[in-house]
């Protein structure tokens, strides 16, 4: 594989039951392309957490996944409320999710920490009132 392959998705912000469809599609595509299994698993988990966050917190957003010869690059962009304190948001167990989200099995304050944990490189930029952009990279073996 010599050229980068790009997959793009729009995540709806009003249908939590559909959250995860993009991540599942990315996983399926990467597996079909014969990408290293462990890298696919790490990328899929990180992306799934991000997709859930887009649906829960941001009113939806855009996902762009680029597969290069040596890396899976995942970009998540939203125009949601932004994160006032990123270091606080990155700490395990801290969450602003409402009870209804917790009743669905999320909002335990593990989303961003899990995304960082499963990425080889993780970067988050956020401006209150403007939105949040997260870039995650997973290296291929």
């Amino acid at each position: 594989m010599s050229e980068a392959i790009t997959l793009r998705y729009t995540v709806p912000g009003d249908d939590f039951t559909r959250a995860g469809e993009a991540s599942a599609d990315v996983k399926r595509n990467l597996k079909r392309m014969g990408v290293d299994r462990e890298a696919v698993r790490k990328a899929a988990i990180a992306l799934y957490e991000g997709e859930i966050n887009l649906a829960i917190h941001a009113g939806g957003g855009e996902i762009t996944v680029t597969l290069t010869p040596d890396t899976i690059v995942m970009l998540l962009e939203d125009h949601g409320p932004g994160i006032p304190d990123i270091s606080l948001a990155m700490s395990e167990g801290w969450s602003t999710a409402p009870d209804e989200v917790r009743s669905l099995g999320f909002g335990a304050g593990m989303g961003l920490p899990n995304m960082k944990k499963y990425s080889d490189r993780f970067d988050i930029q956020s401006t209150v009132g403007v939105g949040t952009t997260i870039r995650m990279e997973v290296d291929l073996a």
């Binding site: 039951t17 799934y48 099995g105 999320f106 593990m110 989303g111």
Partner: peptide
């Protein structure tokens, strides 16, 4: 019942026990 906790746990070919009942 917390899916984020499940996602923090890593092991192939596992079984998930849960009382949560939704597509996630």
């Amino acid at each position: 019942d917390m899916m984020s906790d499940v996602l923090a746990y890593v092991k192939d070919q596992g079984v998930l026990l849960t009382g949560l009942n939704n597509p996630q």
